[in-house]
Structures are given as structure tokens and as C-alpha cells.
């Protein structure tokens, strides 16, 4: 899942207070699960903006709306469009994808990002999320006992660990597990530690972000022009 966290309130307030009518648009999928941009967060921000505008003597109107996903066209239904049209600006609490998708759909509207999209991750326990994938386009996790060095090593070392691994923790942050310490531990348990003596050659990053905006096309799934629904 995409994991995000809400932007600092003051940032959002500065954006909202520039307009007369602001719509807070929540997203009901990933950002709901990671408690950054679901209906509850939308309502909290709504309350916060109302309280702050009263405190600071600004006058703007805030409305709210949450849709299932902001990365699919059909969820921007009539009601959503109407609410967006009625507002001067939209703060969307969806991930970066949603923010862009919304901007593309309503080019005339000022659309602000309400959250910082941080990573692809997992709920380790309730209230704690951790990065697990960097979306590099070429999965090598299975070479490393199921632990991704690209996403989970601060230096993305493919032949780690570096000298900074200490007591199983990363030198960059003592709360963070050293991915390579985990890899070594797991491979030792699996009895495959010696596999690490093979040099992992420089990675092909062209499948990653470095290859430019990526697209995935499934020709078999695409609808013909004639069968596309209007909308």
C-alpha cells in the first residue's frame, strides 16, 4: 500500500486561507488505511481549519468529500464534480497519484496536495508503517532472503552491509533495522549465507524512476475505441 502522512497544518492552512471556498477531498483506499487521508482525517482537517480560521480571524468556507479512490476516473462522479466546481480550490488528501489525477481531471481548478506520499509499505502493527518496496521495476527481493536492499538499506547497497551496521541497526537511524543485518541473519538461518559471496553486479535502474515516467500496457485489457464508455 502507499503510505503517506498529512502535511503540516500550517502549510495547509496557508494554502486554504488564500481562497474563499476550499474543498477537502479524501481518498478511501491506501491513505485511509494508513490514516492520512480518509474520511476521518478529512473531518479532522475540516475541524482544524475551521478552528484556526476563527482563531486567526480569516474568513473562508471549508467543505468535505471523500471518494473511494482518486486514481480512477469513475470515482470522480457527478456529486464530486459538483462539489469541486463549487469550490475555489481543492486540497486532496490522496497520495501524489490522486493529487495529479484530480488536477488532470479539473485543469481549471487549483489543486493542492494535503499529504506527503512517503513510501510503499506495510502496517507493521497498528499505528506503525514501514517502507518495504521502492518500486524499482525489477524485483530482486528473492536474492536477498525476501528483504529488499533497495528499499530498506539507506544506501541501497547491493553488496552490503556497509561498516555502519551496528547491533543490527542502521547507522542513519538507530531505530531502523539494518536491512543487511536482516539479510545476513535470514540467509544464515536458511543456510544460504555463502550465496552472498557472489558479487551482485550494478543494477539495471532503467526499469526504475530513472527510466522516466513508466507505463504498463496490457493490450488485451484495453477497450477498443468503440466500446469505451463515455465519461
Amino acid at each position: 500500500m502507499i503510505v503517506a502522512e498529512r502535511k503540516l497544518f500550517d502549510d495547509l492552512y496557508a494554502k486554504a486561507s488564500k481562497h474563499k471556498k476550499v474543498l477537502l477531498l479524501g481518498c478511501g483506499t491506501c491513505v485511509t488505511v494508513c490514516m492520512a487521508g480518509g474520511e476521518k482525517e478529512v473531518d479532522i482537517l475540516d475541524s482544524q481549519l475551521k478552528l484556526a480560521s476563527r482563531e486567526r480571524g480569516d474568513d473562508f468556507e471549508v467543505t468535505t468529500h471523500t471518494i473511494v479512490r482518486q486514481c480512477d476516473d469513475e470515482f470522480f462522479d457527478e456529486e464530486t464534480s459538483r462539489k469541486i466546481a463549487a469550490a475555489d480550490a481543492v486540497i486532496t488528501l490522496a497520495c501524489g497519484v490522486g493529487v495529479q489525477f484530480c488536477s488532470e481531471k479539473y485543469p481549471e481548478k487549483r489543486v493542492y496536495a494535503g499529504v506527503n506520499t512517503v513510501f510503499y509499505g506495510a502496517t507493521v502493527e497498528q499505528g506503525l508503517w514501514e517502507e518495504r518496496c521502492a518500486g524499482c521495476g525489477e524485483c530482486i527481493v528473492d536474492q536477498f532472503a525476501g528483504i529488499c536492499p533497495v528499499a530498506r538499506c539507506a544506501k541501497s547497497l547491493m553488496n552490503g552491509p556497509c561498516g555502519g551496521s551496528s547491533n543490527g541497526k542502521c547507522e542513519v537511524d538507530k531505530e531502523t533495522d539494518c536491512a543487511w543485518a536482516l539479510i545476513v541473519k535470514r540467509m544464515k538461518e536458511l543456510g544460504t549465507l555463502e550465496e552472498l559471496s557472489e558479487i551482485t553486479l550494478p543494477k539495471d535502474w532503467s526499469t526504475s524512476r530513472d527510466g522516466g515516467p513508466r507505463r504498463i500496457v496490457h493490450e488485451s485489457l484495453r477497450l477498443d475505441e468503440g466500446t469505451k464508455k463515455e465519461g
Binding site: 552491509p161 561498516g163 543490527g168 543487511w180 543485518a181 545476513v184 549465507l193 559471496s197
Partner: peptide, 23 residues
Amino acid sequence: AAENPFADPFEIRALRLGKKVKA
């Protein structure tokens, strides 16, 4: 190349040195 004989995990250290030599 450099090597830190004292970094954790200790069991990977010599192995990793071998890898550097191999490289």
C-alpha cells in the same frame, strides 16, 4: 578497498572481504 572488521554482523565480514577481493 576499505573494510571494517568490527562492524556487525561479524559473520559476514570475512565473507564480504572475499567478495571485495573477488571483485
